[in-house]
Design a protein around this nucleic acid. Structure first.
Lengths: 222, 222
DNA sequence: CATTTCCTTACGGTTTTCCGTAAAGCTGTT
DNA sequence: AACAGCTTTACGGAAAACCGTAAGGAAATG
């Protein structure tokens, strides 16, 4: 079983529930964080002190408040943590239930378990913790186990999502190209971006970019 | 203080936290519901039995699952409950933090208190419960108290709504003009439509039309 | 190593949007 | 009738998006 657990979550109600639950389930030392940055610093410090966490349970979305923050989302946090301490186990605990998003979490952020907040969230969380405490490498809840079957659903990648997001916040294709270049993200040429948007328009049966973004919003992609 | 409280919420973690909190705070009989329909039935039954609830605390969004449901959202639930038992106090407890949405909850659903889930959600909830238990009619958390000041009301007419809707389904400004002409809707010239879109962009602080539609969707206008 | 294939980039021409200015029309006042 | 104030319409140039075609490059195949 785990010895030292960090729970990152900004909604205090959930926080309280998760902690009391972990307390009953394990004998671990349980710490908490209400901000991504805070969580990251704790992970880092624990590692330096030679007493690293062996499990991180984190939400994905954190509200912004007055504080200046470096890490803005659970995804950012997970990536940073996994860079610092690759062997740590991470469970994402979020309201998110879109399978392609969850798939991306496993593939791009390297999470080891996903639990969807909901009517049976606590039970699922418990199962995930127990599974990962054993020798299970990745825990995917049963109803989602199909997400890794090859070509199942949409083939929208991180890149497309980013593109759509940038469009939706009012950036021009030029600006998006510049942004991608800065991020070292390819393809980044105006031409490619244009082409990609075109593909997306075909895919989503949109007449123009406005329509595309409108559809993407309806589908909950952004 | 309240004697009988119903808490409706689908995320079990939050549920547990809210209930244990209410338990400590009040001597009330506390019931729970994980579905809108379930909550509504409980309110109705309690009323018929002559032992009505005097406080309902509810989330706004409930996940869909296998069940067939009549009421699909917290708003629906609140409206139905207030019709059935107008004097019941209702606190909405949600992640929502857009002030115009919250304002609408007070004005259209008749809620008596709003608490935003977040880092201090529990404390706020406690304050709201205490305030409403006294003779306070409506409890609005301090950071939102400005939402009822007149001048931030949105002045969007039917015409603008139609315009935004047409844009969102991919029509060009030309096409929209033609459509308006056919409907005998003025103004219908390209120039006027252009100008109107411009005003809307200013109003919604949008950089371009894509951004405008994106914002309009976020605001729930369409 | 040559060839094929796929992806990225470049470019030119057309359409649509964007933006400012100005004319035309309508209304109410003096 | 003259005038001011407002809305609608018209128009022209700049910017951005749209669309097709083609060149350049990298990886894969034989």
């Amino acid at each position: 079983m785990f010895r030292k657990i960090l729970a990152a979550e900004d909604i205090d109600s959930i926080h309280a529930a998760v902690i009391s639950q972990l307390d009953q389930l394990t004998h671990a030392e349980i710490h908490q964080a209400k901000y991504c940055d805070e969580a990251y610093l704790k992970v880092k410090k624990a590692l330096l002190d030679g007493e690293p966490y062996d499990l991180l349970i984190t939400d994905l979305s954190f509200k912004q408040d007055h504080r200046d923050t470096v890490l803005e989302s659970g995804e950012d946090l997970i990536k940073s943590v996994k860079e610092t301490q690759p062997e740590i186990k991470v469970i994402a605990y979020s309201i998110e239930d879109r399978s392609y998003k969850i798939k991306a979490l496993f593939e791009e952020c390297g999470i080891n378990g996903y639990v969807s907040k909901g009517r049976e969230g606590s039970k699922e969380l418990e199962k995930a913790v127990i599974a990962l405490a054993g020798d299970t490498e990745n825990y995917v809840p049963a109803p989602l186990s199909n997400i890794f079957q090859a070509n199942n659903i949409i083939e929208i990648e991180e890149y497309d999502l980013k593109l759509i997001k940038y469009l939706s916040i009012g950036l021009t294709q030029d600006e998006i190209g510049a942004k991608f270049k800065k991020q070292g993200n390819v393809p980044s040429s105006n031409s490619s971006i244009e082409k990609r948007i075109n593909k997306l328009k075909l895919y989503f049966k949109a007449k123009n970019t406005i329509h595309l973004i409108s559809n993407a919003k309806d589908l909950g992609l952004i």
